[in-house]
Design a binder for these strands. Structure first.
Lengths: 200, 200
DNA sequence: ATTGAAAAACTAATGTTATTAGGGTAAGAA
DNA sequence: TTCTTACCCTAATAACATTAGTTTTTCAAT
């Protein structure tokens, strides 16, 4: 069968999901594509580039999923939907998800763009809370820390009681939303205090 | 110089912190100890066992740090101190910290004990909120997800604006505490509703 | 249809790492 | 002092990534 980038990405993703991102090898990938290992180098420069393609794919999927999940929603509903979609993707594609974590190198514009698109979409989902400047960054980082932490502990097998994992995630999301609410209210109060007529 | 387990652990930790846990190799470790690679096998069974020792060390440090940080504190103060200590350790020892994440195999009692000791200490720090059953587990998982998520994104270089990282972490901790507070209050309310005289 | 260049496959070789096998040395207990 | 054990060594094997160099396939232009 024809070997192209799409198929490489697909098989690499499947392998990474099965054996872990670190367990992904050029040998296994070549075998899955039914060619010899060195032949892979006609298509990709090396294992790093394979992982880079996985990262691009994962970031795009996450971003599109986030858009689909949050469209037409706002406030807590949007954030909840974002959380659930994000976690579901990470849970179903642990290897691909892991590839999205490293920070792209400065010179890799394509990767950086994909990464920042996801960031923008997450920020958009938080819009309803009206957080400004540093607060918005804090919220964004909090959101990412929360999903990433939960998803990677889940993937590491740290959470035994299968039944309650969804419940725990939902609980944590609500905790976050409550805190977010409070932060938004305080920010609002400050603004009114400092600029009562909202003319700033 | 004499080679023993303590020195192996020490050098392995240093290497893992410098080059990442995955970058830790038997070759580098042997070189750091000034012996040939195969000689390492007189002391440890392989790279897996080296990582296991790192995990044991990391779990112990985290637990002792948590105890030291929270002693004499309760409620939000205890949880805040736990968060800060946990993150500080992960930040200063990214390689060792990464070793503490995988779930120990069923048969490895020592590792499992170290792991569950840390869990118990975290639970103890949350005691003040009086959460019962599933709620307590949710809170515990939430706490771990937050620190782990934040610490590993931080280690991955995901958070650029250096200045504000501490601020973001503090913000996230406060969000969690606010949510915890609310959850505790609701749990209390339910208890009173269902068993007004508290005789259950 | 034929040819000629580019793409993509192959074999062979190099270097790195983990690990095992087997042999020598030095230190400490009998 | 001798013997045993612990610890070091060299040599060898196997898995992997990658490079070099060659052949085959493909496909577009004649």
């Amino acid at each position: 069968m024809k070997v192209d980038l799409a198929r490489i990405r697909h098989e690499a993703g499947a392998l990474a999901n099965r054996h872990g991102l670190d367990g992904l090898s050029m040998s296994d990938l070549a075998a899955a594509l039914d060619i010899r290992t060195p032949s892979l180098y006609s298509h990709v420069a090396g294992v790093e580039e394979v992982k880079r393609h996985l990262a691009l794919y994962g970031l795009t999927e996450l971003e599109q999923g986030a858009v689909r999940a949050t469209v037409g929603k706002s406030g807590p509903d949007a954030v909840r939907a974002l959380f659930n979609g994000y976690r579901a993707f990470a849970y179903r594609n642990p290897g691909v998800y892991a590839a999205t974590i490293p920070t792209p190198p400065r010179e890799d514009t394509e990767w950086r763009v994909a990464s920042s698109r996801l960031t923008q979409t997450c920020l958009a989902a938080l819009q309803g809370y009206g957080l400004k400047g540093a607060e918005a960054i804090h919220a964004l980082r909090g959101l990412r820390s929360l999903v990433h932490g939960f998803a990677s502990l889940e993937a590491a097998g740290a959470m035994h009681h299968t039944v309650k994992r969804d419940e725990s995630f939902a609980w944590l999301v609500e905790v976050f939303l409550a805190g977010l609410q409070k932060a938004a209210a305080q920010a609002q109060a400050h603004k009114i205090t400092n600029d009562p007529k909202g003319t700033a």
